[in-house]
Amino acid sequence: MFELKGIKVGFFCSTADGKITTNRKFRLSNLSYERLMYTVEKNLKDFERLLEISLSLGCGIFRLGSDLVPFASHPSFKKDWLKEVEGKLREFSKTLRKFPIRITMHPGQFVVLNSPKKEVVDASLRELEYHFWVLETLGVGAEGVVVVHAGGVYEDKRESLKRLKNTLRENQWLYRYLAVENDERHYTVRDLLDAELDLPIVFDYYHNRLNPSEFEVSEILQTWSGRVPEFHLSSEPEGKHRFGEHGDWIKVEDLMDFLNHFGGNRIDLILEAKQKEKAVEKLLSELYIYLDVKP
C-alpha cells in the first residue's frame, strides 16, 4: 500500500471513463422496485471492482458514490424497498471487510444544514440519514466519514453559523459520521475553527488556496480527536475554467506543498482529480521520479 510520511491516498466514486461506477442511477419517473434492485446490484458489483482497482494502486481510502441506492431519501421511495436493499448491503459488507480501504461519502451541494428554509434543512437531514444508514449497513465503523460544507452565508455569516450549530444541537446523531469541509467561496478553515462546531474539519487544499485563512496544522488535527483525518487534494485546471473547478490531474508540486505542511501526520487523502484512478497512477509515477526513488 502506498504511504508517504503517513499519507494514504485514494480516489472517488468511479473510474475516469465512468464505465465502472457506484453512482449509476436513472430518472425519477422510472423509479420502480425492479429498476432500483437492478441498479443497486450493478452499483455494488462495480463497488467491488473499484475496491480492487484501489488496492492494485496501493490506495487506502475510497469515496463511495452517494447514488449507491438511487433516490433513497426521496418521498417517492417506498420504505419497504429498504428491507431488501439492506440485505444486499449487509451481504456486501462481507466483501468489504476483505479490503483494507477506508470508506467515506460526500453528498452534493444540495445538503445545506444552515439554510433559513426549514424544508431545505429537513431534506438535507433525510439525505444525511440515508448516507449514515449506508455506512452503518455496510459495517463501516468509526473510520467512516460523511463530508458536508458549512452551507451558505445568506448575507450574515455569523447568523448562518448559528443556524448550523442549532441544527447540530437538535440532531445529535449527526456527530456519528459528519465532518465539515472548508469551501472555495464562503467558509475558510479559520471560520470553521472559530465556529467551534465540535465536528472534524476536512481540510481541502485547493479550496484553501482559493479562500485562504491563517491556522495552525495542529488546530485542524485536534478536531479529529485522535481519529485519522480525511483531507482533500486537487489542482487548478490548465487553461480556461470555472472558479473552483478541479483539474484532470494532481500536480506533484501541490502534493509536495501539502506534505510540507502536513507530512509526518497520519492522514487519508482523497485526490479530487477528474481523471480519478488514472490521476492516482500518474501522480505516484511522477512522485517516484520527483523523489528519485524506485516504486
Rank of each mutant, 00 (worst) to 15 (best):
R169L: 09
L178K: 00
S115N: 05
E119I: 07
L199D: 00
R158W: 09
I250G: 00
E129W: 06
W249I: 11
K165W: 02
T137W: 06
G152Y: 00
A179R: 04
G244Q: 10
P229T: 14
N182H: 11
L82G: 02
M1N: 11
W173V: 03
P100Q: 06
W224M: 14
E181Y: 03
A195V: 00
F262K: 14
R27G: 05
F258Y: 15
P295D: 13
K162W: 01
G264N: 13
E245M: 14
N182I: 06
R126C: 03
P229D: 13
K79G: 06
P212G: 03
Q275E: 15
K240H: 02
T15Y: 00
H241F: 12
N114M: 03
R185K: 15
V217H: 12
G65T: 10
G108D: 14
E84I: 08
P295K: 14
E214C: 01
K251M: 01
L168A: 04
T104V: 14
E159D: 08
S93T: 06
L271M: 13
E3M: 07
P107S: 02
T22Y: 05
R126Q: 10
L57P: 09
L164A: 01
Y187Q: 09
L113D: 00
L255S: 01
R185F: 14
T188A: 05
K282I: 12
T137Y: 08
V111L: 03
K118F: 09
S32T: 11
L89Q: 11
A16R: 09
E155A: 10
D122I: 12
D248R: 13
K162Q: 11
S213D: 00
E214Y: 11
K19F: 03
L271S: 09
L271D: 06
I103G: 01
K19M: 05
M256I: 14
G139Y: 07
S32D: 04
W249E: 14
L284D: 03
E155P: 02
G87D: 15
R266M: 11
I250N: 01
F215R: 02
